[in-house]
């Protein structure tokens, strides 16, 4: 199978093949979704090391549980749920004082773009800092909805709560974030 052929395969095909023990098919799935899952994990846990560990655990768990997935097309939603859960567990286990040891989130490569771009980047940094002021569940709700565009239904399932509660957490998260962003008006 050439790389081009493999790249063209849809999720459901790759999931079905992976379930039969095809590790090459599974590797394609990992390649396809490691980016979004890593970014989600990084935004929720805030440190690159924990995000990497979480994503690695998620894909290993997913491999082991492929047999339990009823609908091959549901793989991506299931990944989002598992990653969110894994990240919230990491945060629950973390000692309270460890929050001060978080990375300065990824500010990849020095940002050298001038003027307006500098301001935008500074706003992004401020937003990343503000996210750390939310509770883990609020942060997960907000990131899943506003950055990854997941549905309320999916988020409720990922967090283990109701849609109503997700909307409540989102509202509080948004209000709190807006307050922190106020100096940038």
């Amino acid at each position: 199978m050439s790389v081009a052929e493999a790249a063209a395969l849809d999720d459901a095909t790759l999931v079905a093949r992976s379930r039969d023990g095809d590790m090459r098919a599974y590797e394609q799935l990992v390649r396809r979704y490691q980016g979004p899952m890593y970014r989600l994990a990084l935004r929720i846990v805030g440190s690159t090391g924990d995000a990497e560990d979480a994503v690695q655990d998620v894909f290993l768990t997913a491999w082991r549980r492929l047999g339990q997935l009823n609908d091959d097309r549901a793989f991506i939603g299931w990944l989002y749920r598992t990653t969110t859960n894994q990240c919230l567990n990491v945060l629950r286990k973390r000692k309270p004082h460890a929050d001060t040891e978080l990375d300065e989130h990824e500010s990849p490569a020095p940002r050298t773009r001038p003027d307006r771009a500098v301001e935008v980047n500074a706003q992004l940094d401020a937003l990343q800092a503000a996210l750390r002021g939310l509770t883990p569940e609020q942060r997960a709700c907000w990131v899943l909805r506003e950055v990854h565009g997941r549905s309320y239904d999916e988020i409720a399932e990922a967090i283990g709560t109701t849609q109503q509660s997700v909307r409540g957490r989102l509202a509080r998260a948004r209000a709190q974030l807006a307050e922190v962003m106020a100096p940038w008006r």
């Binding site: 935008v120 706003q123 974030l177 106020a182």
Partner: peptide, 9 residues
């Protein structure tokens, strides 16, 4: 401002 920063994220 939040919306703008979110779009950047």
């Amino acid at each position: 401002v939040l919306r703008e920063a979110t779009a950047e994220m």
